[in-house]
Design a protein around this nucleic acid. Structure first.
Lengths: 189, 189
DNA sequence: CGATTTGCCTAAAGGTATTAGGCAAATGCA
DNA sequence: TGCATTTGCCTAATACCTTTAGGCAAATCG
């Protein structure tokens, strides 16, 4: 019998594709086995368990997202950088909803520390170099930007803004304007 | 044999409690049956299926959250109202993480229309009466506030801000200051 | 009090997760 | 190149969750 050539890496990638097609929730070891035309038990030589698969998809997505962010930020500053990074998240979520959902998976502290999560915080902080904020305010602003990006993207993905005026793109631009104005004029406590 | 007195209502309530205890993802018809010390099949007289149970928990949570919001907004305006509503979301998510997760469940349009979702948008819009925004900007602001509330709360729940300085409460207050300042000074396009 | 409705049960089929143990293909070494 | 070892995928089996069908007894109604 011919071997399928499974590897942990290939399984994680295929799992990410599957997530985009059917939703991250629906990613299952069984479905993945079907996709490789292989028996379910065979995957357990490459994956510890179902959670392991999900974690690997999450890590892969975080990495991919961080790579896109880094590319988008290169050579940009100020509002230009702000918008570029924000669009990376939004576009990624639209192109790869399953992967985006995976990136939201709650990782245990160990895994989280080794993930690309740190790069994300770092990129947001880099944007703030174009604005004049004191140290603690930078952290507050990083958290706020993360909240807006993630919050908007997930509400949009959940269909929250469809079928209503004005269209989502318009709101998104105006939010960029608003965040830029806010960062240029960050209020004292 | 003595009857357990199951009703759809009681099952949804118990499901919500279960969600808070073990996480919304882990809410299962079987677990619920165990909780009532009843055979699994018995629940199917009261629930269409597993999805139906989840939907009912979501609706119940949305309703509860809207009730709390309405109570918090009564008699308040401006920044006071803004903070009060924001705290309702944050506190609810901390007290009832499972229900909060349930409230994020993607509902089909029919169900969503009949849910308390509309009340939520309505409450956010009510806050904006304390600020001076034109009509389309009100919608942009409603969406932005929703994003920040939801985004912050879910990142916080996912452990994003723990184990790092400054503490989450401090950031939360500063975000309230920032949103208030932003709404008082909403930028033109 | 008898008839009907209703509520929970048993039974059964199908799907996912996971572990144990086996055989054959690939690989490494002489 | 031939043999030994490793590795990869398989079969088998257990356990849990979901869902449907059909039955009996408790509650309710006339």
């Amino acid at each position: 019998m011919v071997r399928a050539g499974l590897t942990t890496e290939r399984l994680a990638r295929a799992g990410a594709e599957l997530a985009d097609e059917v939703g991250f929730e629906q990613v299952t070891v069984s479905a993945l086995a079907r996709r490789f035309d292989v028996k379910v038990a065979s995957l357990y030589s490459h994956l510890k368990n179902s959670q392991d698969l999900k974690t690997r998809i999450a890590l892969l997505s975080l990495e991919e997202l961080a790579d896109r962010g880094a590319a988008a930020l290169a050579g940009r500053a100020g509002k230009d950088a702000l918008t570029a990074l924000a669009n990376v998240y939004r576009d990624y979520a639209r192109e790869h909803p399953g992967r985006y959902a995976a990136a939201q998976l709650r990782l245990d502290p160990q895994t989280a520390a080794a993930s690309a999560g740190g790069r994300h915080a770092h990129m947001t902080r880099a944007i703030l170099r174009g604005y004049d904020l004191t140290e603690p305010d930078q952290t507050h602003a990083v958290r706020m930007l993360g909240s807006v990006f993630h919050g908007y993207v997930s509400l949009e993905l959940a269909g929250g803004f469809s079928h209503s005026e004005p269209d989502s793109q318009e709101t998104w631009s105006r939010i960029m304007d608003a965040l830029d104005a806010l960062l240029r004029n960050w209020p004292a406590p």
